[in-house]
C-alpha cells in the first residue's frame, strides 16, 4: 500500500514537472535578442505581457550584449534585435541581415564613480575625463569588455580622446575588463571603488545597490539611441517576419512610446528612456 502511494506521488510529481518544463514548446513564438541595458532596467518585463496579449504569441527575450545579439541575427537564430550601436546597426542592415533600423528610445550614457572622485574628473568632458584616467593610471576603470553597445561607446570615447584602444586595454592594472553585463559591471565597479561607463536607465535601476555617483554626464558623444531591427527574411527564410514587423509597429506606436517615456518615472523620479520613434536625435 505504502509503495503504491509513493509510486503515485512520484509519478504525479514527475508528470507535473515535465508539463511545466516543456510547456510551450509547440506554441508560436517570437525570439527577441536584446541588449542587457534594456533588459536590466525591467523594460522588457513590463512590455512583454502587453505584446503577448495583443498578438497572441509567446515572446522569448534573450538578453545579450549588442555584439552577440547582432551575431544571433546574422546566424538567423532570432527574429528581431533591439540594440544600441548605430554604426554596427547600419552595417547589419547594409549587409542584408536586417530589414530596417527603427530607433524607438534614447537616453544618455554617463561616467559613474566613487563619491569622493579619486581621479578628480568631475564635470570634465568625457574625452578629458578618459585622458585624465589614462594619465593618472591609478584610479580603476571597469570596462564591459564584451563587445556590447556600451563597450562600443567606450571605445568611441577613447578614440575621440586620441587613444588607440588596444593600447588602453593593455595600459595597466587600472584598466579592468569585466566581461559582464551592464548591471554586473556596475556592481563590480562599486565593489572595486572604480569608474565605469553606463547607460542612465541601468544606473538608475541599480542605484540603490551601488556606492557610485554620476561623475560625467555632459557631452554630445554620450547620446545613446536604442533601435529595433527585424531580421531580413532574405537572409533567413525561417524568420518570423510578420510577427517581427508587429513588434516594430508595437514599439513605435504612440501608446507604447508614451509608456516607454513614462517607464520608471514614479520609481526613480526621472525618465529612464525618452521616446523617439520617427525622430532620431542626432549628436
Amino acid at each position: 500500500m505504502q509503495r503504491k502511494v509513493t509510486t503515485v506521488i512520484l509519478s504525479t510529481l514527475v508528470i507535473a514537472s515535465l508539463l511545466i518544463g516543456f510547456a510551450g514548446c509547440g506554441q508560436p513564438r517570437l525570439k527577441v535578442a536584446t541588449t542587457t541595458s534594456l533588459y536590466d532596467t525591467g523594460l522588457w518585463d513590463y512590455l512583454e505581457p502587453m505584446f503577448e496579449e495583443e498578438y497572441g504569441v509567446e515572446l522569448d527575450i534573450i538578453h545579450a550584449g549588442t555584439g552577440i545579439a547582432l551575431e544571433y541575427g546574422m546566424r538567423g537564430d532570432i527574429d528581431i534585435i533591439a540594440v544600441h550601436s548605430k554604426s554596427r546597426e547600419e552595417q547589419f542592415v547594409a549587409d542584408g541581415y536586417g530589414v530596417e533600423r527603427a530607433p524607438f528610445a534614447y537616453n544618455y550614457f554617463l561616467i559613474v564613480g566613487p563619491p569622493d572622485d579619486p581621479a578628480g574628473i568631475k564635470d570634465m568632458s568625457p574625452e578629458d575625463a578618459f585622458q585624465t584616467l589614462y594619465q593618472s593610471a591609478s584610479a580603476r576603470f571597469i570596462s564591459r569588455g564584451d563587445d556590447s553597445g556600451t563597450h562600443g561607446k567606450e571605445k568611441a570615447i577613447w578614440a575621440s580622446a586620441g587613444y588607440d584602444y588596444e593600447e588602453v586595454r593593455t595600459a595597466g592594472r587600472w584598466y579592468v575588463e569585466g566581461g559582464k553585463g551592464m548591471g554586473a559591471t556596475l556592481l563590480m565597479a562599486s565593489e572595486m571603488g572604480g569608474y565605469t561607463l553606463t547607460d542612465m536607465g541601468t544606473f538608475l535601476s541599480y542605484q540603490s545597490e551601488l556606492a557610485l555617483v554620476p561623475i560625467v554626464q555632459e557631452g554630445a558623444i554620450l547620446l545613446n539611441v536604442y533601435s529595433v531591427i527585424a531580421v531580413n527574411p532574405e537572409s533567413d527564410p525561417n524568420t518570423n517576419i510578420e510577427m517581427a514587423n508587429n513588434m516594430v509597429a508595437f514599439l513605435t506606436s504612440p501608446e507604447i512610446q508614451e509608456l516607454i517615456g513614462n517607464y520608471g518615472v514614479d520609481e526613480y523620479g526621472m525618465q529612464l528612456f525618452a521616446p523617439c520613434a520617427g525622430a532620431e536625435p542626432m549628436s
Partner: peptide, 10 residues
C-alpha cells in the same frame, strides 16, 4: 525548479 528538474531528469 520544476523546469530544472524536468530538463535534468529527462
Amino acid at each position: 525548479a520544476g523546469r530544472s528538474l524536468a530538463i535534468s531528469a529527462t
